[in-house]
């Protein structure tokens, strides 16, 4: 039974993702990203459909998704700005930057601007401490921030000047996987088995030659 919330394209990609793993459940997080790429967040409809795709109860899908910071079960703004305030950034003025951001965007950390353009979040270390303080906008990095450069960033985002660099919220990977052993699931299974058998027999042969 298809629930039909995901677009045909998203559904097809989700099915490809499922085929990548020995067990469908493994595709859960990648598919959640995919659903966010479509809707910006994980809608209840998407959750129900993902559950069906990977063979879980919907409660398990929310249970898993809510464990992870990047997966949103509530709507978020067009741009999710996450400001790192962890130790390295803190030592270089991150809290002052966050405060500035709150004032500038007129929203408390964790909130979304009234017009739905920005969601501001306080992040844990984003692993770009060489250019602290840093923030991410829709998971694209901006470093060496000052209140002034933050303002410019916001202006550029508003004006669409960064559209090429910062895709809409939820878009994680713009490059599609092309390689891979698999063409269709049947072939994949056979390939996998042959490979495993070859390796096993080689291992056996080498074991024999050593003893």
């Amino acid at each position: 039974m298809t629930i039909g919330h995901l677009s045909d394209e998203a559904r097809r990609r989700a099915e490809e993702l499922v085929a990548l793993y020995p067990h469908p459940r493994s595709a859960l997080i990648p598919i959640c990203h995919l659903a966010q790429e479509q809707d910006g967040w994980l809608t209840p409809e998407a959750i129900a459909e993902i559950a069906e795709l990977v063979g879980l109860a919907p409660a398990e899908v929310v249970g898993t998704a809510t464990f992870y910071d990047m997966l949103h079960t509530e709507p978020v703004g067009r741009y999710v700005i996450t400001v790192c305030t962890n130790i390295a950034c803190m030592l270089r003025g991150a809290y002052e930057l966050l405060e500035h951001a709150e004032d500038r965007l007129e929203v408390r950390s964790g909130g979304t601007t009234a017009d739905g353009t920005f969601t501001l979040e306080e992040a844990e270390c984003l692993a770009d401490c060489g250019v602290a303080p840093v923030c991410q906008v829709n998971h694209r990095f901006f470093g060496n921030l000052s209140p002034a450069s933050f303002d410019t960033l916001v202006e550029d985002l508003r004006a669409g000047r960064l559209d090429g660099e910062v895709p809409p919220h939820g878009t994680l990977v713009r490059v599609r996987r092309q390689g891979g052993l698999r063409v269709d699931p049947e072939t994949v299974t056979t390939e996998r088995r042959q490979m495993a058998e070859a390796i096993a027999s080689r291992a056996e042969a080498s074991g024999d030659s050593q003893t």
């Binding site: 209840p44 959750i47 129900a48 109860a57 919907p58 409660a59 398990e60 899908v61 929310v62 249970g63 898993t64 809510t66 464990f67």
Partner: peptide, 16 residues
């Protein structure tokens, strides 16, 4: 299932 993590972790249902 458990929702969220750490000290905000709660037991709950999928709302629907």
């Amino acid at each position: 299932d458990f929702l969220a993590r750490g000290d905000t972790m709660e037991v709950n249902i999928f709302e629907e």
